[in-house]
Design a protein around this nucleic acid. Structure first.
Length: 567
DNA sequence: ACGCCTTTGAAGAGC
DNA sequence: GCTCTTCAAAGGCGT
C-alpha cells in the first residue's frame, strides 16, 4: 500500500517492503515534532559522545592492520554519523530526498573490503557541511562560529545541506570524483572559513580522509568534538600513511592499488578490467589479485563474470555480501548515535534499541531506508548478476538457534535464548515514549518512566520490540504467540518468521503467552552506565533537564533492580 | 580465535 | 503460498 514516496516510486517494486510499517499506524508522525527537542538533545549528546569517544578512540587504534582498515573507516563514518545524527530525526524535512544510488567503484559487498561505504559517503560532503554553523535553526552559513565547534557541540546541520541518509548512499562513487561532485551537493561545498559556497579543491573534497595532524591542528576542526584528541585522526591510520587527502596515494600498496582504481579523482582512466560489463566498475573484478579477502574465496558466480582465470578459485573467491536491507542500513546509520547516547557497546543491546527505534520511525523515514535498500539490491544485482544469497550460505560456519519449535521446550533452550537486553532499553525508552509528545505508547507506562529501573517493561513487551508503537495489534500479538508459530502467520511478512523465531520469546516463568510477566530475564544485563533515557527516541524538551540527572542516576544504579525476579 | 547474542529484512529452499 | 533458514552489521562477551 504505502507507495509513500509518491513521486519517487519509479520502480518501487518493493511493495511488500512497505508492509512492515503498514501497521505502524499513526503513532510515528509525532517524531517530527521533536525537532527542537533534538536540537537540545545535541547538547546532551555532546557530553555523552565526548564521554564515549575516549574509549572508542582506543578501539580504533588497536587494529592497524589492513583488514581493520575498513573497520576503521566505518568507525570514522559512524563517528561522523554521530555528528550528523543530531538532525536525523528531522528527516521529515527530507521528503523528497533523491537517492543517489550510483554504482560505486568500491565494493561494499566484499568483505575484504574496500572503503567503507559509509565512510566513502562522507568524503567530500560531510566535512564541508560541518562548517555550516551549528544551530540549524539559524541556517546562517556565514557565521562559522568556531566556538561551537570547539565546544564539541554537534553541529546541527540544516536539512538542506545533507540528507540524513546520505551516509547510506553507500555505493555511490560520486564522492570520489572530486571533479564531479554530486550536482546537488556541489553547492554545499562551503568554505570552511567563510561558509560561502565555493569550488572545492580536490584536497578538500575528501575531508573524510584523515587530515594530517598538522592540518587538523592548524584549523579548528569542525569535527573537533569527534576527534579523539587534538590532531588525532579519528580512525586508525594505516602504517603506510593515509594522510594524503587521497588515501589511495598514501596507502599501502595493496590498498592503494585497489583504491586507486576506484578513487581516481575523475575516473578518467579506470583500469579496463575494473569495469563491469554494465559499465559499472566491478569491484570484485577490480582487484581479484590485488586485494582479496583474507580468507579469499570467490563464488562461482564470480568466475563467470570475472576475467580472472578461475585458477585458485577457492582462494580467490571474494565473499560477496548480501545487500543490506533497510533495517541494516538504518542500523549502520544509527548505531553510533545509540552508542553515544547510551555508552553502550554490546551490539545485541544496541540492536534491540535500534529495532525499537526502527519501528518508531515515521513512514517516510522508513520508506527512505526501504527505498535505499531496494536500490542497493538493484545495484547489487547489477554488480553481481549471478550472485545468489545462497552463495553465502555456509560461509558463516555457525549454526545457531536451530530451535525446532517443538524440539525443545521453551525454557530448555539455551539460556542465552532468553537473554533480554530490553529492560535496559526500555528504560532508555521510557522517558521519551511515555511523554505525551512522543509516541504515547501504551506499552510504556509512566511507571516505567518514574522508575526506570523498575521492571515496568513486561516481558511480553520485551519480546516485542514493536511494543514501542501504539499498535496493540499487528506484530505485537504475533510476538506473544508461542514459537510454534502464530507469529509467522501474518502475511505481513516483515518480522514474521525470522524475527519471531529468533526472538527471545521466552515466555518466562509460569506465565502464559499474553500475560504480563513482570520478570525481564536478563542474563547478560547491560550495565547501567550504558543506559540512557534518551536512547530509544529523542527526548522531549521536558526531559532535557532530566537527562543528565537520569544519566547520573543510572550510573549509580545497581543493576539488581533490573534483574529482579518476581516469581 | 571463534561463536553467540540481538535486531529487521531479503532471499532461497522445502513442503 | 506458506514456513523456515540463513545472512547481512556490529561489538561485547563467553568458551
Amino acid at each position: 500500500m504505502p507507495q509513500l514516496n509518491g513521486g519517487g516510486g519509479d520502480d518501487l517494486g518493493a511493495n511488500d517492503e512497505m508492509i512492515s510499517f503498514k501497521d505502524e499506524g499513526e503513532q510515528e508522525e509525532k517524531i517530527s515534532e521533536n525537532v527542537s527537542a533534538e536540537r537540545d538533545l545535541d547538547d546532551v549528546k555532546s557530553s555523552l559522545v565526548n564521554e564515549s569517544e575516549s574509549s572508542s578512540d582506543s578501539e580504533v587504534r588497536k587494529e592497524p592492520d589492513s583488514e581493520s582498515y575498513e573497520k576503521a573507516r566505518d568507525y570514522f563514518s559512524e563517528a561522523l554519523r554521530r555528528q550528523q545524527d543530531g538532525g536525523f530525526f528531522k528527516s521529515p524535512h527530507y521528503p523528497g530526498y533523491p537517492f543517489l544510488m550510483i554504482p560505486d567503484l568500491t565494493n561494499p559487498y566484499l568483505s575484504n573490503g574496500s572503503l567503507s561505504p559509509s565512510a566513502r559517503t562522507y568524503l567530500q560532503m560531510k566535512w564541508p557541511l560541518l562548517d555550516v554553523p551549528g544551530s540549524a535553526g539559524l541556517k546562517d552559513s556565514r557565521s562559522p562560529t568556531p566556538g561551537h565547534l570547539s565546544n564539541k557541540v554537534p553541529v546541527v546541520q540544516h536539512a538542506h545541506h545533507v540528507h540524513p541518509l546520505t551516509p547510506l548512499i553507500t555505493y555511490s562513487n560520486e564522492h570520489f570524483s572530486p571533479g564531479t561532485p554530486p550536482s546537488h551537493l556541489s553547492p554545499e561545498i562551503l568554505d570552511p572559513k567563510t561558509g560561502i559556497p565555493r569550488t572545492p579543491h580536490p584536497s578538500e573534497l575528501s575531508p573524510y580522509y584523515p587530515l594530517s595532524p598538522g592540518a587538523v591542528g592548524s584549523i579548528a576542526h569542525p569535527l573537533g568534538w569527534l576527534m579523539p584528541q587534538q590532531g588525532q585522526p579519528m580512525y586508525s591510520i594505516p602504517p603506510g600513511g593515509f594522510r594524503h587527502p587521497y588515501p589511495a596515494l598514501a596507502m599501502n600498496a595493496s590498498m592503494s592499488s585497489l583504491v586507486s582504481s576506484r578513487f581516481s579523482p575523475h575516473m578518467v582512466t579506470p583500469p579496463p578490467h575494473s569495469l563491469h560489463q554494465t559499465g559499472i566498475p566491478h569491484p570484485a573484478i577490480v582487484s581479484p589479485a590485488i586485494k582479496q579477502e583474507p580468507s579469499g574465496d570467490m563464488s562461482p558466480t564470480m568466475h563467470a563474470k570475472s576475467p580472472v582465470p578461475p585458477k585458485k578459485e577457492e582462494d580467490k573467491k571474494p565473499h560477496i555480501k548480501k545487500p543490506l536491507n533497510a533495517f541494516m542500513l538504518y542500523m549502520k546509520e544509527m548505531r553510533a548515535k545509540v552508542v553515544a547516547e547510551c555508552t553502550l557497546k554490546e551490539s545485541a543491546a544496541i540492536n534491540q534499541i535500534l529495532g525499537r527505534r526502527w519501528h518508531s520511525l515515521s513512514r517516510e523515514e522508513q520508506a527512505k531506508y526501504y527505498e535505499l535498500a531496494r536500490k542497493e539490491r538493484q545495484l547489487h544485482s547489477q554488480l553481481y548478476p549471478g550472485w545468489s544469497a545462497r552463495d553465502n550460505y555456509g560461509k558463516r560456519k555457525k549454526r545457531k538457534r536451530d530451535n525446532k519449535p517443538d524440539s525443545k521446550p521453551e525454557g530448555e533452550r539455551s539460556k542465552k535464548q532468553c537473554v533480554q537486553y530490553l529492560p535496559s532499553e526500555k528504560m532508555c525508552d521510557s522517558p521519551a515514549s511515555s511523554h505525551g509528545s512522543m509516541l504515547d505508547s501504551p506499552a510504556t507506562p509512566s511507571a516505567a518512566l518514574a522508575s526506570p529501573a523498575a521492571p515496568a517493561a513486561t516481558h511480553s513487551e520485551q519480546a516485542q520490540p514493536l511494543s514501542l508503537t501504539t499498535k496493540p495489534e499487528g506484530r505485537m500479538h504475533h510476538h506473544f504467540s508461542l514459537p510454534g508459530k502464530a507469529s509467522g502467520s501474518t502475511s505481513s511478512s516483515t518480522s514474521s518468521s525470522s524475527s519471531s523465531s529468533s526472538q527471545p520469546i521466552s515466555i518466562p516463568v509460569g506465565t502464559s503467552a499474553g500475560s504480563q510477566p513482570t520478570t525481564p530475564i536478563l542474563t547478560r544485563p547491560i550495565p547501567f552506565t550504558s543506559l540512557h533515557p534518551s536512547m530509544l527516541s529523542p527526548p522531549s524538551p521536558f526531559h532535557q533537564a532530566a537527562l543528565h540527572s537520569h544519566h547520573a542516576l543510572f550510573q549509580s544504579q545497581p543493576l539488581s533492580l533490573v534483574t529482579k525476579q518476581t516469581e
